[in-house]
Design a protein around this nucleic acid. Structure first.
Lengths: 64, 64
DNA sequence: AAGAAATGTAAAAAACTATTGACATTTCTT
DNA sequence: AAGAAATGTCAATAGTTTTTTACATTTCTT
């Protein structure tokens, strides 16, 4: 599963820590997700999609 | 977080066990999600949305 | 080049999701 | 009403996500 959170985050001029506090997680969680260490929970994925004004399906790409 | 998996599953004429095997989890997992015991992982949510030909955002409603 | 800011990373623990096997209850069918 | 099918549920276990604390490395700014 891929995602393009880093690009979208930078477009908004946010650092990892900013994004983390906005969606209510820690900086390490955002960092781990951007670096594909693991996938977020559904709730976090939806919060992120909402913030970036996009959909979960556009933000996260399920690979076959 | 709410979801309307039960309705969509029934529309397709599937039992919990059918849906479970289609998306690669157990019957208990589908049952727990339909009954709001916990939320699925992002991956499972996306598989379900795809199967029901809808989006994660339409299938799962983040409550405030 | 130096200091500051941002990002990367690691280990341990907490919290959550999923599995398995089993049995109870409800709903459907006859 | 009885049996079958489907759903509900529970306990134990395994795997995954998130937190916390802490430090290392990279990137930005002066």
């Amino acid at each position: 599963m891929k995602n393009n959170i880093r690009e979208l985050r930078k477009k908004l001029g946010l650092k990892q820590e900013d994004l983390a506090t906005i969606v209510g997680v820690t900086r390490q969680t955002i960092n781990a997700i951007e670096n594909q260490k693991y996938n977020p929970t559904l709730e976090l994925a939806m919060k992120l999609a909402k913030l970036f004004n996009t959909t979960v399906e556009e933000l996260f790409i399920l690979d076959k």
